[in-house]
Design a protein around this nucleic acid. Structure first.
Length: 531
DNA sequence: ACTGGGTCCATTCTGCTGTC
DNA sequence: GACAGCAGAATGGACCCAGT
């Protein structure tokens, strides 16, 4: 997640003047609506910070009333039809950008019909049995039975108050996905799994399904998850060596690929393509389902038949953006620029690693984590081969993320991420300036009016600012000083493609730096020597 | 040695999807 | 709509193991 959700809690509508003086209404969607902007979209464009992500520009300039179908990227059982939304706490599902947008030019709703429908639904709710009304059961109130492992699934379901649809399509599906995301060892038994991975999965399930908190010590989750895993492994073991089954064919194809290309691990051999695989199973079954959460590549794991491709979720970036948001928001200007710097004493260090990422728009897998463009994976089956190749010839890993944000100078309007660029430790002002110039030109070409561009006071940052200014035309305003003996007050502005903007430095960052310098413990020790 | 809980595994049933 | 194939849901028995 790129944007801090807590800063996006409230939707706001603002009116912005553009370069031609027209007023453009902008509705700020709720937090979830930003999800499509984060990660995939931005990383997709982040390889080359040429212009703002298209969806972002579309969102801000011309919000549409009913673009794509909701939940088009939603999760669920592979290939299954949409499941109805059931009453439980919302999962962080990806929503459409314009979910919160007004109806626009659609026909006005029939208020009477809607009111009637509401009354019907309320009447139905009152007729529901007590158990179906989400009874309030205190947390940890269902004690673990003596033989918890013998408790039938129906009993767990009854405790949770789920009907069959909720139980199978939502809860158990989520449990299976959580297990997949935890990257347990395929082929290993339950006791051989790492406890911390299981804990992670349990906590994710508990967060998504708060009703499970009523089980003392998560025993209900434990029982369900273990059973899911047992079933999966049971099926896996039964079929992995049977070439006439789907699992068997997939496993055989993986073995063939590995045996055919990897032992010598030639450094420059292209990744094997699908054509090298064994014939695909009968009526084309979908590939193993890509997951929402990107995986950290663990090159050392050599699961011979590990067909679980995915990994744990890691939200290590959230707080970086929190701080950036605060800094730029304080500046109250249009364009702010900050970076998530691993050396800046920030709370979160960027852990350099290659990670596969699925771009739902391009329908392709990419490997991110290196500087420059994301590395495209031809297809998911070539992922391992691509990783092997990268392991042999490792790319330059990104140790920093450079983040460009857009701040609308109105109170309570959260900043928006414009672009992300993975960079190495040493990037000069020349390169930064080029990126920023292209970004600003892209914004201006889309009729954004940039008021100011700011950064912190580091020398590289100032160099970047100077270079962007050098590409602009200077505009000087003079204000008569109240004191006739004093010179005029000069305000230096810059004009870029018809857009007049000003350079500023992040005052909050300056305050923080000054405070740190003045209150440094090292300085205190030096003073002590002179005391 | 007995007991009870946990784990593994075989088996059957069920549901979904794609094909014809 | 029937059918086949795949995969999950659920159950129960065999076995293991620690505690008594």
């Amino acid at each position: 997640m790129i944007l801090p959700s807590q800063t996006l809690a409230r939707p706001h509508a603002v009116v912005l003047p553009d370069l031609r003086g027209r007023k453009t209404s902008l509705k700020i969607p709720a937090a979830d609506a930003y999800a499509p902007l984060s990660g995939l979209t931005l990383v997709r464009a982040g390889g080359a910070v040429v212009e703002p992500a298209p969806k972002l520009a579309e969102l801000i300039i011309c919000p549409k009333s009913s673009p794509e179908k909701e939940n088009s990227r939603g999760r669920g059982r592979r290939g299954s039809k949409q499941q109805p939304q059931l009453s439980r706490s919302p999962r962080p599902a990806l929503r459409n950008l314009n979910d919160n947008a007004p109806a626009g030019n659609t026909s006005p709703p029939d208020v009477e019909a809607l009111q009637k429908r509401i009354e019907e639904l309320e009447a139905q709710v009152t007729q529901l049995p007590a158990a179906a009304k989400a009874p309030s059961v205190p947390d940890e109130s269902i004690a673990r039975p003596r033989a918890a492992s013998k408790v039938p699934m129906k009993e767990i379901q009854r405790h949770l108050g789920y009907d069959d649809k909720q139980w199978n399509s939502l809860f158990r599906t989520y449990c299976r996905d959580a297990l997949t995301s935890a990257r347990l060892k395929t082929g290993e038994n339950w006791k051989a799994q790492r406890a911390e991975k299981l804990t992670m999965a349990y906590n994710a399930i508990e967060e998504a399904f708060p009703e499970t908190r009523r089980f003392q010590g998560q025993w209900g989750i434990d029982r369900t998850v273990k059973q899911c895993w047992d079933n999966r492994m049971n099926y896996y073991r039964n079929n992995v060596d049977k070439p006439d089954t789907y699992r068997g064919r997939e496993a055989a194809a993986r073995r063939a690929r590995r045996n055919g290309s990897s032992p010598p691990r030639s450094s420059h051999s292209p990744p094997p393509s699908d054509r090298d695989r064994a014939p695909s199973p009968g009526p084309s079954r979908p590939q193993p389902r890509p997951k929402k959460n990107p995986a950290r590549v663990e090159s050392g794991s050599e699961d011979e038949d590990n067909d679980q491709f995915v990994a744990q979720s890691q939200d290590e970036d959230d707080d970086d953006e929190n701080e950036d948001s605060a800094g730029v928001g304080m500046s109250a200007r249009a364009l702010g620029k900050r970076k998530a710097d691993v050396q800046g004493g920030r709370e979160h260090r960027l852990f350099s690693a290659l990670r596969p990422l699925y771009d739902g728009i391009k329908k392709k897998w990419f490997i991110v984590g290196a500087i420059g463009e994301p590395i495209e994976v031809p297809d998911i089956d070539a992922l391992h081969a691509t990783l092997d190749r990268l392991e042999k010839n490792p790319p330059t890993m990104a140790t920093k993320l450079r983040l460009w944000t857009l701040q609308i100078p109105l109170p309570r309007v959260p900043p928006l991420v414009l672009a992300i660029q993975p960079i190495e430790a040493k990037v000069k002002g020349l390169q930064l300036g080029e990126w920023q110039l292209r970004l600003m030109k892209g914004l201006i070409s889309r009729e954004f009016r940039i008021i100011a561009s700011g950064g912190d006071g580091a020398s590289v940052e100032r160099d970047c600012q100077r270079r962007v200014a050098a590409a602009s035309k200077p505009v000087e305003f003079r204000i008569k000083h109240p004191d006739p003996d004093s010179p005029d007050i000069v305000v230096e502005l810059w004009e870029l493609d018809g857009n007049v903007w000003v350079i500023f430095q992040d005052a909050k960052h300056a305050r923080k730096t000054f405070r740190n310098n003045a209150a440094s413990g090292a300085r205190g020790l030096i003073l002590g020597n002179y005391a």
